[in-house]
Simulated scan of single mutants.
Amino acid sequence: MTGHSHDNIDWDAHLQRLRDADEFTAPEIAELVGTLLRPTDRTVLEIGAGAGGTAAAFASALAETGGSVTIVDAAPQLLAAARSRAEQVCDRVAVRAVEADAADDSLLDAVGAQADLVYAAFVVHHLPDQLAALRRLAKLVRPGGRLAIVEFGLQTRVLPADIGLGEPGLEARLIAAREEWFQQMRAGMEGAVRLPVGWPTALSQAGLVDVHSWSYLVDRPAPLDDLGRAAVLRRLQLLRRDAETRVAPGDIEVLDQLLDESGEHCAAHRDDVYYLTANTVHVGTRPQDG
């Protein structure tokens, strides 16, 4: 998390949500980490701590060879939790936590060393000047090393097209409302600069070469287990946060019914909810003479 105030966050609740999300996507993250790491990689720098699930996956992948994982975040509560989680994996992997903001030009000085792999998932789109951020992150990569960012590929879907409450197409309207919220958020962000190109082009403009991308699915068909049902509720809670003034009152009423865990219409009680999303990984290499 970077570039945001953390003053009013319920950290216990927030960390629990992040831990639950880590547990839900652990198979996909383990596979992603295994794909990203090269046999010669020993140092990993993760921008954005979360609850430490990805840092722990990197530590596990480095367990046989040894190495180090450095976690960077502006929120000390997240750093402490992520470091503790990653340190539990293997004593052959050094874990370091650095409190710093990815939007700050002093990031390289704060981190203090370059890494074989710099990894930032769902971070860059939140930063005011995204191209400048990519150039900043590229400086953290040793020559010959790589920068990998993960950004949204396709919008998450969890509901049938017609849930039997209100008008059909509720989820599509909620997704449109979230996209409207995001564009308004970026437009109102201090120092915001548009990025009128795709992520691969932006990585190339940041000075990286051999840029390539691929996507991975988080695909949980119905009926879901408890982890999946909890993930559906987290997704609907996120959509609820952004929908208040952007969809019709009837849609809000239906969404509140889906989120009411004591009610008969709660999404977690349905056997037809599912979880499907596609995230895209974009990787570029820093030139040897970079």
Rank of each mutant, 00 (worst) to 15 (best):
H4N: 01
H4R: 05
S5E: 05
N8F: 12
I9P: 03
D12H: 11
H14G: 04
L18N: 03
R19T: 07
E23Q: 11
E23T: 13
A26Y: 08
P27Y: 08
A30S: 13
E31R: 14
T35L: 10
L37R: 14
R42P: 07
L45F: 09
I47R: 01
I47P: 01
A49W: 14
G53M: 02
A55T: 04
A57L: 12
F58H: 07
A59C: 00
G66I: 03
A74W: 07
P76W: 14
A81P: 01
A82I: 13
A82C: 12
S84Y: 11
V89G: 00
V89H: 02
C90P: 00
C90R: 04
R92C: 03
R92Y: 10
A94P: 10
A94W: 10
V95F: 02
R96M: 13
A97M: 07
A97R: 03
V98E: 12
A102I: 09
S106C: 08
S106Y: 05
L107V: 02
L108H: 13
A113S: 11
D116S: 06
V118N: 06
A120M: 05
A120L: 06
V123C: 09
H126G: 00
P128H: 09
D129S: 09
Q130V: 01
L131K: 10
L131I: 09
A133H: 03
R135V: 08
R136V: 01
L137F: 15
L137V: 04
V141S: 11
R142D: 09
P143W: 12
P143M: 13
L147Q: 09
I149R: 02
V150N: 08
F152I: 13
L154F: 10
Q155I: 06
T156W: 11
R157V: 05
V158Y: 13
R173F: 14
L174T: 00
A176I: 04
E179M: 06
E180M: 11
F182K: 07
F182V: 06
M185S: 01
R186M: 13
A187S: 15
G188Q: 03
E190F: 06
G191F: 03
V193N: 07
P196F: 15
V197L: 10
V197C: 14
T201G: 06
A202Q: 04
L203S: 14
L203A: 15
S204F: 02
S204W: 01
G207Q: 01
L208T: 04
L208F: 11
V209D: 08
W214E: 11
W214V: 00
V218C: 09
R220W: 15
R220S: 12
P221L: 09
L224Y: 15
D225T: 00
D226R: 10
L227Q: 14
L227T: 12
G228L: 11
R229F: 10
R229G: 04
A230H: 08
V232I: 09
R235V: 03
L236F: 04
L239T: 00
E244H: 13
P249M: 08
D251L: 03
V254L: 05
L255H: 02
L255K: 00
L255W: 05
D256L: 06
L258A: 07
L259G: 02
E264D: 00
C266G: 11
A267D: 12
A267W: 12
D271Q: 14
Y275P: 02
L276T: 06
T280L: 05
H282Q: 03
V283I: 07
T285D: 04
